[in-house]
Simulated scan of single mutants.
Amino acid sequence: MCYSAQIVAEWKKFKRVFKADISLLDYYERYWLRCSDRKIKLPKSMEAAFADPQDDAERRIKAVIDEFNAQQAAEWEQELFKQRKRLADAERTLQTKTTKAAVESKRIATDKVDWLLGKLTDLRRTELKDRDSRIFPGWYAPVMVIENGRRVVKPMRYQCRPAGKPAFYDAKFPGTYNARRDNLEGFWKGQFGHSHGIMVVNAFYENVDRGGSNAVLEFRPRPTQDMLVACLWSRWSAPGEPDLLSFAAITDEPPAEVAAAGHDRCIIPIKPENIDAWLNPDPSDLKALYAILDDRERPYYEHRLAA
């Protein structure tokens, strides 16, 4: 299972490299909804793409990003004030008497102050780091699809909720951020051959067992490259609810080096020349779609313990 990936989030790169349009309305709606729904998670690198807006649509997106960040900063600053007061109170108590409660209160307050200061620093930081492009299940990422005959990039949640299914599918099937190749005509029959997408990543992360304990490994292709990961996606709608665009990455048996590292699945990077054929699937010719998955890029994946 590809539980995390380092994505290419700069939508201007999609325009330049893939000649794709950008659905700025979908970006705006997702950032606007995030102001009232903190469950919506978007990586910092997606925000950074709007740091220097060039037109009114981009300025509107930046405005809602700034509004959310201001709300978040205010909440953390209020909590920081509260925890600093708690720390000071505990330290005053310890000056006259050592109690278990005061020691524990000081420890908790110290940890929370450090955490809050780190979050505020990250929020205000403008220089991007690799971790700013990491996504996890439930997070949003840019996904390239075909719309009205054009390549279009839309922000989608990395956990697919198939159209027509109840919202509780997210909890009932928490692993739906990946779509097993051997189940494409089963669980995923409503998407396979109908709604295909591509997520661009340059690394992925897996949980593996190391002597009875869990370890997170980072896999990077060699030579270094952006990988065009084959995905399925869906638009979920329900009365009184905002539409949800969500997707899953297709996984298959791993290459030898991934299996040797301790993992039994791997994403499928398709070749650039197959982009349009993948994004314009023919449901009456699934054999051709499987052929695209077989005719994949096959880089060597180096791995290391994730930071």
Rank of each mutant, 00 (worst) to 15 (best):
Y301I: 03
R161Q: 12
D66Y: 00
W11L: 08
G197N: 07
D282V: 02
A238Y: 09
V8M: 08
A167R: 13
W236V: 04
L24F: 15
P255N: 06
L217C: 03
E241N: 09
D56S: 11
S234F: 09
E10S: 11
R220L: 14
Y300C: 07
I292K: 06
L245W: 12
D132C: 08
H263Y: 03
D56V: 06
S195A: 12
K119V: 10
G138N: 14
R296K: 15
L87S: 08
V200A: 01
F247E: 05
Y301F: 15
E47P: 00
M156V: 02
Q6G: 09
R161D: 01
D130I: 10
K271G: 01
I65M: 06
E297W: 02
E206H: 07
D294H: 07
S4E: 15
L123T: 10
Q191K: 05
V64E: 12
G262T: 08
P155F: 11
P239K: 14
V113K: 07
I146W: 00
G211Y: 01
N202K: 09
F68C: 02
E77H: 02
A101H: 04
G212F: 04
A179C: 04
S246F: 14
P53R: 11
E77F: 00
R296T: 06
N178Y: 09
I270C: 07
A249E: 02
E67P: 00
R131V: 14
R265E: 13
K13R: 13
D111E: 15
A88T: 02
C231N: 05
P272C: 05
Y205F: 15
K15P: 01
V64C: 10
D21M: 04
A9M: 02
F219G: 01
S4F: 14
P221G: 10
P272V: 03
K106S: 15
G164R: 12
S45D: 14
V229N: 00
C35W: 02
W233N: 04
Q95V: 04
S195T: 15
P272W: 06
P255S: 11
K172G: 00
T98S: 13
A109N: 06
R210N: 09
L305S: 06
R210L: 06
F247T: 12
M144R: 03
P269V: 08
A260T: 11
L305E: 12
R151E: 04
P223A: 03
Q71A: 07
R84S: 03
G190Q: 09
H263K: 05
L87W: 04
W115L: 12
E241G: 01
A238D: 14
P162S: 08
Q6V: 08
F168G: 00
K129V: 13
A101D: 11
R151I: 03
G118L: 13
F204P: 01
L25T: 15
G186W: 12
S45Q: 10
F50S: 08
R150Y: 03
A20Y: 10
Y158L: 10
V152Y: 01
F168L: 05
A20W: 12
Q72W: 07
P239H: 11
G193N: 13
W139L: 00
A141I: 00
R124E: 09
E206W: 03
D264L: 10
S246Q: 11
A260N: 13
A238P: 02
P223F: 05
